[in-house]
């Protein structure tokens, strides 16, 4: 799973996915028959089928991650920023970031606890009150290193934690985990034409998937995700959404899509028959590229399979390589059967 490390450490905030695209392209160039980058930056690769069917299957994984954008440089050289995508203000304080093409290091400062009024310790600091310190003392100096409009990512190295679940930590598993799975799936050839769409701008509104689906016009689709895993100890009646190590999570319904029942049943049946562990993602939470894909043109039957990933949308996330491999297995076995699925009603 070396590619997960490379993917995780690549910088690709929504709208600026070029570096991630390059990593993926290098990995898949020899595995696919055609590829192109579209107007928004989606990487769309075609793995031709064995010719038995005209069916087109789209599998999407998004390349972008949540991050920051530099909005303004203050006179004394500190940088004001705005989140790109959904980030909880509370995870921002005292983090290290890398800014722009040259990966200029900076830190999001925090007032020392000693200087805080007791009340202030309980208050959430809003991102508008924070700034990034890159070590300069004037606007002019700052402008030599960074510019307004630069993107910034959290600086988090990929580390293997090991253990029975073969846990790893890194940034942006949402959705580099999905990208890693999709890259693996491109090793095989299937009876149908497989369109792998590595999409952009999922985190700002499923925008890449929307145009990719329109141009591919698939007969059915899967979205691969690194999804919410909220399995910290808490009151027993609260769902963990998904649980680490319990296998790929299948979506029934989230905020963006009601998964196609026939595809869901095929996934479940395939998992059961092959002894692959699986779980259901808690319904009604989150949204994925499938939300845009299933509404493309005249509609596309769609499903979502995800790798449970703890602490997504924060600097560091954590997943089990077992789950990642089981997701590859589940998808590989399901794709082998998807051609026989009757989609008429």
């Amino acid at each position: 799973m070396l590619l997960l490390k490379e993917l995780s450490e690549a910088c690709g905030v929504s709208g600026n996915e070029g570096a991630v695209r390059q990593v993926i392209l290098d990995a898949i160039r020899d595995r696919v028959d055609e590829y192109r980058t579209d107007a928004l930056g989606n990487l769309i690769a075609l793995k031709k089928g064995t010719g038995k069917t005209a069916r087109k299957v789209m599998i999407a994984a998004h390349m972008d991650e949540v991050g920051l954008m530099i909005m303004h440089i203050e006179k004394e050289g500190s940088l004001r920023f705005h989140p790109v995508g959904g980030i909880d203000d509370r995870v921002l304080l005292a983090k290290k970031v890398l800014i722009g093409e040259n990966k200029v290091p900076g830190v999001i400062g925090a007032k020392p606890v000693h200087l805080l009024e007791p009340k202030a310790r309980e208050q959430v600091v809003k991102f508008k009150e924070m700034s990034i310190d890159i070590g300069v003392s004037s606007k002019e100096e700052a402008e030599r290193l960074v510019k307004v409009g630069d993107y910034a990512v959290f600086d988090v190295p990929f580390v293997e934690l090991g253990g029975a679940l073969r846990t790893v930590k890194g940034k942006a598993f949402d959705d580099r985990a999905g990208c890693a799975v999709l890259v693996e799936l491109l090793r095989d050839r299937y009876p149908f034409d497989l369109y792998a769409a590595f999409t952009v701008q999922e985190e700002v509104g499923l925008r890449g998937a929307r145009v990719a689906a329109y141009s591919i016009a698939p007969h059915l689709a899967f979205a691969l995700e690194g999804t919410i895993c909220d399995d910290l100890p808490k009151k027993g009646d609260t769902s963990p959404t998904t649980v680490l190590g319990k296998g790929p999570a299948i979506t029934i319904m989230d905020r963006s899509v009601i998964a196609d029942r026939r595809l869901v049943e095929l996934l479940i049946d395939t998992a059961e028959k092959n002894g692959i562990p699986y779980q259901f993602k808690q319904p009604a939470l989150g949204g994925t590229d499938a939300g845009a894909i299933h509404l493309s043109r005249e509609g596309v039957p769609s499903a979502v399979v995800a790798v449970p990933s703890r602490y997504i949308h924060s600097p560091t996330s954590l997943l089990s390589l077992n789950d990642l491999e089981n997701t590859v297995q589940l998808m590989r076995q399901t794709l082998a059967r998807v051609n026989d699925l009757d989609l008429t009603r």
């Binding site: 928004l40 920051l68 954008m69 909005m71 705005h82 790109v84 307004v148 409009g149 509104g205 145009v211």
Partner: peptide
């Protein structure tokens, strides 16, 4: 320069995702 980190809230936001993308 006008850094715009998310939805621009303008016609550009709709135009960009038309059909295959613009």
């Amino acid at each position: 320069p006008d850094p715009t980190p998310g939805p621009s809230g303008t016609d550009a936001w709709a135009m960009q995702v038309t059909r295959e993308g613009l």
